[in-house]
Every structure is written in C-alpha cells, then in structure tokens.
Design a protein around this nucleic acid. Structure first.
Length: 407
RNA sequence: GGGCAGGUGCCAGAGCGGUCAAAUGGAUCAGACUGUAAAUCUGACGGGUCAUGCCCUACGGAGGUUCAAAUCCUUCUCUGCCCA
C-alpha cells in the first residue's frame, strides 16, 4: 500500500521550505508503513476567501502528494474561526462572516480544492464541531498554555506591535483555536504556507499540552503574484485563479516578469526538477529565449489544469491575439435593448458594461483604445448602428459583439 | 481615568483658510514600442454635462465660525503611544 520511507520523504521534501522535525516525520511514516495505517494530514481552509488561486494550489499539490501515498487529507473549514475574523497579517482585521456565508464559502472552497485533491482520500471537517462546544473556562485553560511573549513572536503580530497598529484580543486567540483543531482531529502533519509556520507550531505545543503526540509541520513558499513581487492574493489582484479560463490563465502567466519563470515552473506548473534546471541554465547562458521559456511555462500551467489540448489552444490563441493582432476564436455576443437601432458610442460602452462610467468611456475613446469592427473610433459623439452585430474592441484584449435585442 | 499624536481618494502618503477633485509613489486603464497581458516611455486616473466651462459628490460623523474650510472651533467616534 505504501511506498518506502525514503521515497515518501524525498517527495515531501521537494519544494518545501521547512519540514519540522524531519526525524519525527520519518518515524511517523515508518510507523504508518508498519501498521498500514494512514497519517492524518491537516490543512486549514479559510472560508473568508473561498476563491482559490495558484498560490493556494502550491500547498494543495503538496497535500495531494501525501494522498497519493495513501494518507488522509483532512481539510478543516474554519467556519467557527471565520466567524470570529482572522488576523490577516494586514493591518486590518478581517470582516466577520455570517453562518450562511461561511457555509457557502466552504462549499466553494471544496469545489475548487478538489480540482487538485483526491476526493476519495479526503475528510472535511468544520471546526465549529468542537470549538463551539468549548465554554469560557475551557478557553481560559487553552489560553493559559501559551504566553503573550510567545504570541508576539509571530511575525505579523510583532510587526504590527512595533508599528503601533492595532491588535485585537481575539486575534491572539486565533492561533490557539487553530492549534486546538490539530488536537481535535489528531493531526500527524499540518501543511501551510510559510506565513503559517507560527500557527502550525502552536499546534504542536497545544497537542503536547493536551497530552497527544505533536504534529510535524511542513511549510511551502508563498508564490509571488503576477507582479512578481507581492505574494499572490485576490485583494492585490495579482492572482491566477484555479477556475480562470485557459485563455486568462495563459495570458496572466505570460504577464509575470521574466525573473519569475523558473519559480512559476516549479510551484505553479509543477514541473520536474530536471525541467526546471534545464530552463534555468538555458536562460542563464542565453540558449533559451525568455519569451519561449515563458510561453512554455504558461502552457504547462494550462495543461496541468485543463489538459494537453487546452494548453495548445491557449498558446495558439495567445499568439493570434497578441502577435498577429487577430481575433480570439470565441467572442461573446451581448444583446442590448434600445428604442432605435442607433446609440451613441459612449452610451454603448456603458450599456455593454465595458466602462463603469461615461467619463471613463470618453477617456478610452480619446486615448484611442476603442474600435468598432476594426475601425478605430476617435469621435466621442459617434453614433453606432447596432441593428447588425458590431464587434467592439477595447484595449488589447477585450472583445465583445453587441447587437440590438430583437424582441 | 489622565496626557499626547492621529483618522485624507483603490493603497501608501503630502497638504493645514482661498490658486484643492486635493502633491508624490504604487496599483489600475489606454497609447507607443516589443519578445508577451515582460521591461521601458507617454498619457489618463470621483461623477455628470445639450462638452470644457459649469454643476454635483468627496478629505472619520454631526454641528459651527467665515464671503470662502480637507485646513479654524465645538462635539461625537475610532486608532496608536505614554502615565495610572
């Protein structure tokens, strides 16, 4: 049922930032092989941000590796903690969620996570299952197991503390609650981003304090977003979503800076070490053109999620649109209801939702970013007849057919 | 409880009675160029308008002073620091 200890360790170590403590993990694995008993691999899911992107995928792929060796993935939906609000590492406290939102978000999360994970070896738990049962004295007992100084070691706490930014009491409780999860589900290994290292380690301490065997922790790097600098996140809008269309996935991957190519190969495209090394040396000695390396990387990512054919198509389409300035092979048609069949260009852009305001629409036209049927529109007072469908292009990559709605 | 410092546009951060729809940087969008939705350069960047001048909304909330307030006063509220 299980691969050997060394086979497993090699795979787990690959790409990880930290794996602590390694010998302990080795022991756990040995044991599991001997007893033919899978380990519990914990991953905390944040229900406040249900839309997953390639940054989340880094950890999910790691978890999948554990599954592939027969271990149990245990996803903890932080429905309880989500309702408290989590310290985000940013200066602002996260919004609190309602129960309904949490449930809906949890469902979305799972839907997207199973793009990567193996459903058959997955257990999903809501942490309200045990956390909501703790009473105040339980909480105080839990809180007594950790000190303020220990909590202040956490990077974002100490940063905020030094920068005179607010830290609420409940934020201090958050790592403890998460640690309690580890105890509650009997976690053997917990995975997380490198920013979670602190929380994961608290899990160890709390498990010990409650008399169970402590978990090992494995942290993965935080993948930079398409800007190549900040970590990938929805709020910075530098993300590639797991459910982005192949076209968008490809395009966004192409927009990462050149120096991110190998990093994306490793953590987003899940390329093998050999592939990564080949590209790295090729780029260094100039035998591989960065553009080609990037195209290749983008294609691999699309292939990983949509299959070989989609990868090919995304590449072809990208070349068509940006190299040959041609049209994509599929353009949406929007039918607009108007009295006559003519409409001013500015109103048209707003009606078609291509511009949030008339001022913005006017700007786009004045700057030469708008064309109708491949004819640049330069007059903001142009009147367009949409009895026949017309192709609107805005900027480099927004295409839309519009037509008067026939009733 | 007391003292002090603050709350400005998507974010960071200037401004401290009119010349402020508010410097600067980032983000974003458009254009040029190209190896791409890279880089670089240029421009735009609250909304409305029978159109460029005017109108509306905006500098934590509410009042007030003034011909005029993001800027001064009062009060409320939120945040941080120090003292207790």
């Amino acid at each position: 049922m299980y691969a050997t200890l060394n086979e497993q360790m090699d795979v787990y170590r690959a790409g990880a930032i930290e794996l602590l403590p390694e010998d302990e993990l080795a022991r756990k694995i040995e044991n599991s092989i001997k007893k033919q008993k899978p380990l519990n691999i914990k991953l905390g899911a944040d229900p406040s941000r249900p839309d997953l992107h390639l940054g989340h995928a880094v950890v999910l792929h790691k978890l999948r590796q554990f599954q592939d060796f027969g271990h149990n993935a245990i996803l903890i939906i932080g429905d309880f903690t989500g309702m408290i609000g989590d310290p985000s590492g940013k200066s602002k406290t996260r919004p609190q969620l309602t129960i309904d939102e949490t449930i809906a978000n949890g469902r979305t999360y799972l839907e997207q996570a199973t793009i990567i994970l193996d459903k058959s070896k997955m257990i999903v738990k809501n942490n309200s299952e045990w956390l909501s049962k703790l009473n105040f004295s339980d909480v105080i007992h839990l809180a007594a197991k950790y000190t303020v100084a220990q909590l202040l070691e956490r990077d974002d706490f100490s940063k905020r503390h030094k920068a005179n930014l607010p830290i609420s009491m409940h934020e201090f409780l958050y790592p403890l609650a998460q640690a309690y999860d580890s105890y509650a589900i009997n976690s053997d290994v917990e995975l997380g981003g490198s920013d979670q290292k602190f929380n994961l380690l608290v899990g160890r301490e709390i498990q010990k304090a409650y008399g169970s065997e402590p978990q090992c922790i494995l942290t993965m790097p935080l993948l930079e977003g398409t800007d190549g600098v900040e970590k990938m996140s929805k709020s910075l809008d530098n993300y590639i979503a797991l459910n982005d269309t192949p076209r968008d996935m490809f395009g966004k991957a192409m927009s990462v800076p050149d120096n991110m190519i190998t990093r994306y190969l490793q953590y987003a495209a899940m390329a093998t070490i050999d592939e990564i090394n080949a590209v790295q040396t090729g780029l260094a000695d100039g035998s591989i053109h960065p553009r080609n390396a990037k195209v290749d990387m983008a294609k691999k990512i699309v292939t990983l999620y949509y299959g070989f054919e989609a990868g090919e198509n995304a590449l072809l389409e990208f070349e068509r649109i940006f190299k040959n300035k041609d049209l994509p092979d599929k353009i949406d048609l929007l039918e607009i209801y108007i009295e006559n069949s003519t409409i001013g260009i500015i109103d048209l852009l707003v009606a078609a939702n291509l511009s949030p305001s008339k001022k913005e629409a006017r700007r786009l036209i004045e700057q030469g970013g708008v064309s109708i049927d491949s004819q640049k529109v330069s007059d903001v007072f142009s009147v367009i007849d949409i009895y026949e469908k017309k192709l609107i292009k805005i900027g480099k990559r927004n295409f839309l057919y519009v037509q008067k709605k026939s009733e």
